[in-house]
Design a protein around this nucleic acid. Structure first.
Length: 690
DNA sequence: ACTCTGCTAAACATTC
DNA sequence: GGAATGTTTAGCAGAG
């Protein structure tokens, strides 16, 4: 009972604080309809009245608090000082007043707070009742008058006005119901009246209509009770202020300044305070849940973390741990499981209270999930930003920024169904290998260590070059499997070589040098490398003076995964238009980005012998400007990139590589398709593009 | 259900 | 002869 009353008190106190904003906000919305009425009558709206009264209650509580605080010992004053620091930001935002609800609940003793609030509540209730009564009568009168006066007016106008009045009436009745219910039910659902309309809505959600109606039927009784309380309120408050010494001295030294700021604190707080904590959490949760659609960041979401200790699964029952009942707000001591079960069945049976608390908990979970989604989104934005930060517009060949511009591309869900953030695919980052340590870790670090069948570089437009460039330090140090296929890695290694050729051993070395992951399981991955080299005809073995070297047939490589262009012609059009490039086929995006990046990375060309062996047709490149060759220090074409690609990269300057990809001449691609012995079932890109 | 792709493992041949 | 290199096959699994 003490806990109950204490929580009630706190809730009410907090409501006074928070109610200012929440109520005022509601008056904006709900008050519009009633506002006209209020203006017409020259009276304040019920919401304003409630607001005013809650402010009065808050003022009274503050005064009371101040009186008591003057005699507080240093610890408590310290606490008061510290609390604002530890108050979560959103909480602080919610409570613009100097004294936060937490401070209130820490400093005021439950009886005192309860007395204060009961007093204020009783006053408010009485005034509200009277006010509502008057308003209802006036509304009915006005409605009748309107109907009579506007009998000759257009039906439309009449209808709208009547509707407005009726809505106003209904709203007022609802408001009245809600307030009364709040006052009556606060012990049941731990609702924070101060949360105002938000909490009230939550209450409505938490209670079935029949409950509401039944409760409303008892309004008269409630009123009498409240009036009785009101009469006793003075005595209560007097008693509390006199007899109960101020509780800051009693409670504060035992509890950390702000249990809410740290969930662990809740474990060490006295039971009463923990109950209060839960009440706060519940009330905030309810308050947020109602406007969660419009509030991007739940204000009290972090508070819910403080609730975690309650939910930790200890023992054999999730609701039982450390000899306590973990039911929110309960914490009854139970020696053993049997006792706990008995307690659970007795105290937390299926009733209104348990149901309401369960709903509260559901909303807590819901809020947490929403918060998780929000935080994940924020993380994505942060990572995207960090990856793009070092990027400076290159004079040419700036790869596509897929991450930022491909909102429609299904990547996360496809590649990371677990909800893990996908590796940043911001190809807009500088191409040169660099530069950022593991601190800027792409989400690739989250890749599983096990085999990944589909590397995102292959299908989901993560250019290996950019990814590696961004996180090369990370991959060098972290035992994380790179999210690329062996073929991609081999190709990248080869293209990274000065002459675009590597021996097998050099490829091995590149793997071990670049990836900590490949410093182990050598037998496995080396075999895989050899297997890939042999299997894929894009890797061409060239006999050299010093032995055999491996080169890359870029055309073959890009033919490896012909793009599947799906979608409407308009979509394709949009893709080509440049801004829509995000919808481009990921394979081509990745492949082209990779190839272009690799070209930029590698200062030299493939040796003539290898180039010849690559069977690369030298296609006349009308589009290739000299600047291309200027930029490309070598001044010659890479084995893989067609001149047209270069040309497009150049011409379309800041256009993403996809564009080049898209605009890659189909006919040319067809013509340059080398006739290689190794047959590979392949759809010509042209067909796909068409 | 089927196909494609990628990974792993393994056997075998050739070369160093 | 052993290790490295290269080729090939098979099975499995994920994804479309």
């Amino acid at each position: 009972m003490m806990v109950e009353s204490a929580t009630e008190t706190i809730r009410t106190t907090g409501s006074n604080q928070n109610g200012v904003s929440s109520l005022s906000s509601q008056s904006d919305g709900g008050g519009r309809e009633g506002g006209s009425n209020g203006d017409a009558n020259g009276e304040i709206s019920p919401v304003d009245l409630l607001h005013l009264q809650q402010q009065q209650a808050l003022q009274a509580a503050r005064q009371f608090l101040l009186q008591q605080a003057t005699g507080l010992s240093s610890p408590s004053s310290n606490e008061v000082k510290q609390s604002p620091v530890q108050v979560p930001v959103s909480m602080a935002m919610m409570t613009p007043q100097m004294i936060t609800p937490q401070q209130m609940q820490q400093i005021l003793s439950p009886p005192q707070l309860q007395a204060l609030l009961q007093q204020q509540q009783a006053l408010m209730l009485q005034q509200l009742q009277e006010y509502y009564k008057k308003q209802q009568e006036q509304l009915h009168l006005q409605l009748l008058t309107q109907q009579q006066q506007q009998a000759g007016k257009q039906a439309k106008e009449l209808g709208s006005k009547q509707l407005a009045f009726q809505q106003q009436l209904i709203q007022m009745q609802q408001l009245q119901q809600q307030h009364l219910l709040t006052l009556q039910r606060q012990g049941l659902v731990n609702l924070q009246p101060s949360q105002g309309p938000v909490a009230i809505q939550s209450l409505q959600q938490a209670m079935c209509p029949t409950d509401l109606q039944q409760l409303w039927k008892d309004v008269a009784g409630v009123q009498s009770t409240e009036e009785a309380m009101k009469h006793e309120g003075l005595d209560l408050s007097t008693n509390s202020s006199n007899s109960t010494s101020f509780t800051a001295a009693k409670v504060s030294p035992q509890i950390p300044p702000h249990p809410l700021a740290n969930g662990q604190h809740a474990l060490h707080t006295p039971k009463r305070d923990r109950a209060r904590l839960f009440e706060w959490i519940s009330s905030f949760t309810k308050g947020e849940s109602s406007d969660e659609q419009t509030t991007p960041y739940p204000k009290g979401s972090h508070l819910q973390s403080a609730h975690a200790p309650h939910e930790e699964h200890t023992g054999t029952h999730p609701l039982y741990g450390h000899g306590e009942c973990k039911w929110p707000g309960c914490e009854a001591l139970c020696d053993d499981m049997g006792q706990f079960i008995k307690h659970l069945n007795n105290e937390h049976a299926l009733d209104d209270r348990s149901t309401a608390q369960c709903r509260v908990q559901m909303q807590v979970v819901q809020q947490l999930e929403i918060q998780l989604a929000k935080e994940s989104e924020r993380l994505q934005a942060m990572m995207t930003h960090l990856h793009m930060r070092p990027s400076e517009p290159k004079p040419f060949n700036q790869p596509l920024n897929l991450a930022s511009s491909v909102p429609l591309l299904k990547r996360d869900s496809d590649v990371y169904p677990e909800g893990l953030p996908h590796p940043p695919t911001s190809a807009a980052t500088p191409i040169t290998p660099l530069r950022q340590g593991p601190s800027v870790i792409s989400s690739s670090s989250l890749h599983s260590v096990g085999p990944i069948r589909r590397r995102n570089s292959e299908k989901y437009c993560t250019p290996i070059a950019s990814e590696l460039a961004q996180n090369c330090e990370f991959y060098k140090n972290a035992d994380v499997r790179p999210p690329f296929t062996y073929a991609s890695l081999i190709r990248h290694a080869i293209l990274e070589a000065p002459d675009h050729q590597l021996t097998l051993n050099e490829i091995y070395n590149w793997f071990t040098r670049m990836f900590a992951y490949f410093r182990r399981n050598t037998a496995t991955w080396k075999n895989a490398v050899r297997h890939n080299l042999s299997l894929h005809k894009c890797f061409v073995r060239v006999e050299n003076v010093k032995g055999a070297v491996w080169t890359v047939d870029e055309v073959e490589y890009q033919k490896r995964r012909p793009p599947k262009m799906t979608g409407s012609p308009t979509l394709v059009k949009n893709m080509i238009s440049g801004l829509g490039f995000g919808s481009l086929n990921a394979n081509y995006q990745a492949a082209l980005a990779e190839s272009s990046l690799s070209l930029l990375n590698s200062p030299t060309l493939v040796s003539n012998s290898s180039a010849a062996s690559l069977n690369m047709p030298h296609v006349g490149h009308d589009d290739v400007s000299s600047t291309v060759e200027q930029v490309n220090s070598n001044g010659s074409c890479s084995p893989g990139l067609s001149p047209q690609q270069y040309g497009h990269q150049i011409h379309v300057k800041e256009e993403p590589a996809e564009l080049e990809e898209d605009s890659r001449p189909v006919s040319l691609m067809a013509t340059i398709t080398p006739t290689l012995e190794r047959d590979m079932e392949e759809d010509l890109p042209t067909e796909e593009l068409e």
